[in-house]
Design a protein around this nucleic acid. Structure first.
Lengths: 251, 251
DNA sequence: GCAAAAGTGTTTGGTCTACACCCATGT
DNA sequence: ACATGGGTGTAGACCAAACACTTTTGC
């Protein structure tokens, strides 16, 4: 009857389970993804996402964090979230493997040590990729772009402190269109996402006013633009503060 | 090295894989979810989500659609989307099973035939649920609520044709707060989500102006409020139309 | 006519964009 | 001084929420 855990039933297959991550970073003003070059068949020499098999005692998020920490030096991973399951029966040759895909983010100022067979690749010009990994990369890119608009997810792409100009180029690279620094600062400040450190950089060699340094007020993912429309009526809670109902974060 | 499909490796476990669906419907002006009462241990008599094991030749979405169509008569399923993976090692007793959870929607005017051990339950008052299924229901509810605000997902909860008043009560029940009919109609019309059929209902027994019948212009999920902020500059394509870049739908 | 329910007009408030303008620094 | 890049002021557009008001029916 399809109830879970009712013992061995009819014709299900015990697929293996793997976790894969699209680890994204802004490098050289481009949105790039971390890929491995495969040294074995199948898909010899094609580029694949980091990841691997799910172990017995971990859930999928612990698994992808372990595998990224173990095998690549990406302890600078500032954000990890689940994307979706890829489960086409023939998505990899041989025995069936279901994959849970993740989005991982690394701040633009970090340059983790990589094994020789790993490299960053601009998403605009991907090399030949293995299996269904290309579509996973695109899902990750689209998720990031969407969340840049209504969450504070930028904290995961930016250094701890930065100028508005630097932040602008990060957003522009990720979104693939020009973002105006003026409005970026204003929108993020109004939402309480950004705050000035008070400190300031020195001006560049060609002069100019020295830019102020900013930081994100929070380094946890938060929905900053919760309801586009159909807002709930403002509830005056006894304390006086208005409560805003939460909007699903992993979505 | 964690590359997929490199043959049996170290210490991974071959977890089984199941699919589960939170099938939601507005009934009796409440958001309700379809649950089964278990007839076996473990969690005897507790209520569980419909679903079952993934078969060899199907992907997860085909699997959940098959299992819902086979075992419950919910061919009126108007929308199905993946939520997320639930993979805590001990989420079910016994052998480990990873679950892919789905959101399913049924229009409020349909009343599918159910097996005797299945029932609709208001999400506000869930009975004792099995395993981690309660949290799956809450994830589904939150996803639905979020998408009501920036997509046309209402089409999946509403009948083919409906009055604004009926639609208002559907939205109010799903969101759990009063939505004003006036603004609902205006917002959805402005976005091109709603269109008048031209036809009209007869007035109720206590009089009143007979309401016009509306329908959704599309019965496919579409993002209707794509960018809250940081909109891309309008690109004047040669054809003259403005192109709006897509925002990830499954998110 | 009157009550009831549907639908429209209009005001108000908020938020984003664009652009002009001012500010602070190196040369 | 003046060029250069950073930051602010301000006006315009758009959109949604609220509410008054009109429309159309049953009784």
């Amino acid at each position: 009857m399809g109830h879970p855990n009712t013992g061995p039933g009819t014709d299900h297959c015990d697929a293996g389970h793997e976790v894969l991550a699209s680890v994204l970073q802004i490098r050289n003003d481009q949105l790039q993804v971390l890929l491995w070059q495969r040294a074995q068949q199948p898909h010899l020499h094609r580029w694949a996402l980091p990841g691997g098999r799910l172990a017995a005692t971990e859930d999928v998020e612990a698994s992808i964090r372990r595998q990224l920490a173990e095998k690549v030096d990406v302890r600078e991973l500032t954000h990890v979230e689940q994307l979706s399951v890829f489960s086409a029966p023939d998505r990899v040759p041989g025995r069936r493997i279901v994959a849970t895909a993740f989005l991982g983010l690394v701040p633009s100022n970090s340059d983790p040590e990589l094994p020789p067979d790993a490299r960053w690749h601009p998403i605009r010009r991907l090399p030949a990729t293995a299996f269904d990994h290309e579509s996973i990369v695109f899902v990750a890119r689209d998720r990031l772009r969407a969340k840049l608009s209504y969450t504070n997810i930028g904290f995961a792409l930016a250094p701890d402190e930065f100028t508005v100009s630097e932040l602008r180029s990060i957003y522009s690279a990720a979104l693939d269109y020009r973002v105006a620094a003026t409005n970026l600062q204003r929108v993020l400040s109004r939402r309480g996402v950004l705050e000035a450190t008070g400190r300031t950089m020195s001006a560049g060699p060609s002069g100019g006013r020295p830019p102020a340094l900013f930081r994100f007020t929070s380094r946890d993912l938060q929905i900053t633009d919760p309801f586009a429309v159909l807002r709930p009526p403002p509830r005056r809670s006894p304390g006086g503060q208005d409560a805003v109902p939460p909007r699903s974060v992993d979505a």
